[in-house]
């Protein structure tokens, strides 16, 4: 691989990283909230719901089924 190609690759990785950081800055709040919500549901599912033979769904759905 030539030096030019290596630099181009490094520049592309840097550009992608920069774009991802800015993307994360913009969507951080919703991403974090969504992850926390999912984990809450998952934990509740693993400890309570799965034993009732129900699938992983929104909490409202479980309440209706339960």
């Amino acid at each position: 691989m030539t030096d030019d190609k290596k630099i181009r690759l490094l520049l592309l990785i840097s550009a992608i990283l920069t774009a991802l950081i800015i993307f994360y800055n913009v969507f951080e709040e919703s991403i974090d909230i969504d992850i926390v919500r999912y984990l809450d549901r998952r934990i509740h599912y693993e400890s309570v719901i799965s034993k009732k033979g129900l699938s992983l769904h929104e909490a409202k759905h479980w309440r209706k089924k339960e």
Partner: peptide, 18 residues
Amino acid sequence: SFLSWVLVFLMLAANLKV
């Protein structure tokens, strides 16, 4: 964030070559 730190270390290490 994790990505920010990756960029920091990449940008420091890159100076070894450019």
